[in-house]
């Protein structure tokens, strides 16, 4: 009756072990819910005061205590848009090169170099952007754009180096390695005999890529794109250095602006007053929700290709 190890069935050491690991696994789910809850609770003053107009108002004025997120949201979306427009073709090109074109001896070193780019901390990108890219933008690229295209609203403000365009380019540089290395992995998953059948029918490299590899891996590629998008939306340091931190609504890519993350980085510690802090927290909540949705989409598509993540 009193044998120790074979006690009641509900409580063996193995079940305890399983319960313990499950408890720790629950921890991350709880953490996520608590994070959402705390951000939601602490942004109540701003939500009560401004309601839905928080998202549509372009007033951001600590002096008159009026806060609207529109400029930061537009800044976030514009920098991300620029980044994606630049990063997409380049990363697809890199992935294609690594999976199909490059000689075998070159694949490992180039692939490793691209993955190492992803490991460099974002603050180094930001600082490098500020001291190296901004002067080039200010002296060469932006004046040229301004001289030739200033009739377009996109390039209608005088060139000053920093601004949405520069931030977008630095951001592009940051997400290229992520998208490129996942897309390469997806390309490599394409079965050899599928590709060979196409080659056997006389298809060129590009036709094999376009008609076999991309359709085969489209889910993974979409996942990779959304992962890059999620990273770009939430990136703070690379953007904060070069975006210019200005609060006025402008459609010009040459004008300084602000993103949600850069606003938080610059103003959160200095914010005095309950409403100001609460408005900043609501900005954080908005960013968290946007990236959560984008990253969930990425997770869905990547998961359906059964491929582990490159990062």
């Amino acid at each position: 009756m009193s044998t120790a190890s074979s006690g009641r069935p509900g409580f063996t050491a193995d079940q305890l072990f399983r319960l313990l690991t499950a408890a720790f696994a629950t921890f991350i789910a709880i953490l996520f819910i608590v994070m959402l809850g705390v951000l939601w609770h602490e942004s109540q003053p701003a939500i009560d005061k401004f309601g839905f107009s928080f998202l549509t108002s372009s007033d951001w004025n600590p002096v008159s205590n009026e806060y609207g997120a529109l400029i930061a949201i537009i800044g976030t979306l514009l920098t991300t848009l620029v980044a994606m427009l630049v990063a997409l073709p380049v990363s697809l090109g890199i992935a294609l090169f690594l999976a199909e074109i490059s000689p075998y001896w070159l694949r490992k070193p180039v692939g490793t170099a691209i993955e190492l780019l992803a490991a460099i901390p974002s603050i180094v990108y930001g600082m490098w952007g500020l001291f190296v890219i901004v002067p080039i933008m200010a002296d060469t690229v932006q004046p040229w754009l301004y001289d030739h295209f200033s009739f377009m609203p996109l390039f209608s403000t005088p060139p000053i180096g920093i601004g949405i365009l520069t931030a977008g380019l630095v951001l592009a540089l940051m997400i290229i390695p992520f998208i490129a290395s996942i897309t390469r992995d997806v390309f490599l998953m394409c079965p050899q005999n599928l590709k060979e059948s196409a080659y056997g029918l006389g298809a060129t490299n590009w036709e094999v890529v376009k008609d076999v590899m991309i359709p085969y891996g489209i889910k993974g590629i979409v996942g990779a794109i959304f992962l890059g998008l999620g990273r770009a939306l939430g990136e703070t340091m690379a953007v904060t250095f070069v975006i210019g931190n200005a609060y006025h609504l402008s459609w010009s890519l040459l004008a300084p602006g602000n993103s949600i993350a850069s606003t938080l980085a610059n103003e959160f510690t200095e914010a005095d007053g309950k409403l100001y802090t609460s408005a900043l927290i609501e900005l954080g909540l908005v960013l968290f929700l946007i990236t959560f949705i984008v990253l969930s989409i990425a997770e869905f598509w990547l998961h359906s290709t059964n491929k582990k993540r490159g990062a």
Partner: peptide, 18 residues
């Protein structure tokens, strides 16, 4: 839990700071 971890890997770090 697996999906949530994957998503949180890329979640914006500044929000964690807040």
């Amino acid at each position: 839990v697996r999906s949530l971890s994957d998503i949180l890997v890329s979640a914006p770090s500044i929000v964690v700071g807040v």
